[in-house]
């Protein structure tokens, strides 16, 4: 099995990194006024993180631990994290941060992508949504597995139970990433890992980079847990609306199944994560509470930025992708 192909550069930093990944020689431009949420930084960070997951075709596997690349990653991470710390107001109360997510709006929410897709989403928009989410869902729950050795006791037991479920509870065809690949098949999309990296704008890359950042740093284990709780808490209502959108547009059985499964599964996971993963972590390490709250709010902040881009472009009947889908995949089937 070959890994995904390297994408094209989006600026000086990602160009320097791409040439280093190809020939091993890193030419580091000073990342002076680099936009922490921009395409260049987010792509470079994504490429560096991907070395820890599946890598790329033609890229040496041992570059994962190349000191020069790790130093570049650290520089980019610090810039990204500093921006998030500045943009997400400090909150001390993790319970309050999660409680705010446990309330559903009475009517349609004009700022919510899943509300939009349920009411008026067309098949081409659902396909674009799947393209952008594929960067995470094809490695669903992988970034969170890194936190396991950093947890103890109740938090660890509960985290592993939820991850076991995400990874198919022992059955390969029920791994959530595999179920998402099946969804992509129903939507006439290419389900190969990392295939749509070129299409993903910075806003989409940032949501995945956040998980890798939190997952790879033990110091950010509280934020990772806050992030995971946010995903599980917000998933059931979103998944129900997305399943309804896919049902209405006749996307197919596997496409519906992915989101139907997430309604039932994440209604359980949400309870277990709040009660035992967050509760267990804060019982043993109460000083991490502000980090858990930061993880919740940083996730919401980046998801809102992505949602803004999707709704802004779709409402003008424009593609939300950075570049169009390749020939043969770009048909607007609506």
């Amino acid at each position: 099995m070959t890994g995904p192909r390297l994408p094209t550069a989006r600026g000086e930093v990602s160009a320097g990194l791409l040439s280093a990944l190809r020939d091993g020689e890193l030419r580091r431009p000073p990342p002076g006024a680099l936009d922490p949420y921009g395409d260049d930084l987010q792509l470079a960070l994504y490429l560096l993180y991907e070395l820890h997951y599946q890598g790329f075709e033609g890229v040496a596997e041992d570059l994962e631990w190349d000191p020069g690349l790790l130093a570049l990653r650290r520089t980019l991470e610090r810039r990204f994290l500093a921006a998030l710390r500045a943009d997400v107001p400090p909150h001390a109360d993790a319970g309050q941060a999660l409680a705010a997510l446990l309330v559903e709006p009475v009517g349609p929410d004009d700022t919510s992508v899943s509300h939009y897709l349920r009411r008026e989403g067309e098949l081409w928009q659902l396909r674009e949504y799947a393209v952008l989410r594929s960067l995470y869902h094809l490695k669903e729950a992988d970034p969170h597995a890194w936190v396991i050795p950093r947890l103890r006791g109740r938090a660890k037991a509960a985290m592993v139970a939820v991850e076991f479920d995400e990874f198919g509870a022992g059955r390969a065809d029920e791994i959530h990433a595999r179920m998402f690949a099946d969804l992509m098949g129903d939507l006439d999309l290419e389900p190969a890992y990392g295939h749509y990296l070129e299409q993903a704008p910075a806003e989409a890359l940032a949501t995945v980079n956040l998980m890798s950042l939190f997952g790879l740093h033990r110091a950010l284990r509280g934020a990772l847990v806050g992030h995971f709780a946010t995903v599980e808490v917000t998933s059931p209502p979103d998944s129900r609306r997305l399943a309804a959108a896919l049902r209405r547009t006749g996307a197919g059985a596997a496409a519906q199944r992915f989101y139907d499964e997430h309604v039932a599964a994440d209604a359980v996971h949400e309870q277990v994560v709040r009660r035992d993963v967050v509760g267990g972590l804060l019982a043993s390490e109460p000083h991490l509470e502000a980090d858990v709250a930061f993880g919740v709010h940083a996730t919401g902040f980046l998801e809102d930025r992505l949602g803004d881009r999707l709704l802004r472009t779709w409402r003008r009947r424009r593609s939300a992708l950075r570049v169009p889908l390749p020939d043969g995949e770009g048909r607007r089937t609506s």
Partner: peptide
């Protein structure tokens, strides 16, 4: 599943399993 969440509010659309329909609703 390792744990099942059984609906007790009777509002679930996938009864007997919970679908989080018990959540409080509010105007934004």
């Amino acid at each position: 599943r390792f744990t099942a969440a059984i609906c007790t509010c009777r509002r679930s659309r996938i009864y007997p399993w919970c679908d989080t329909s018990h959540r409080r609703r509010t105007d934004r």
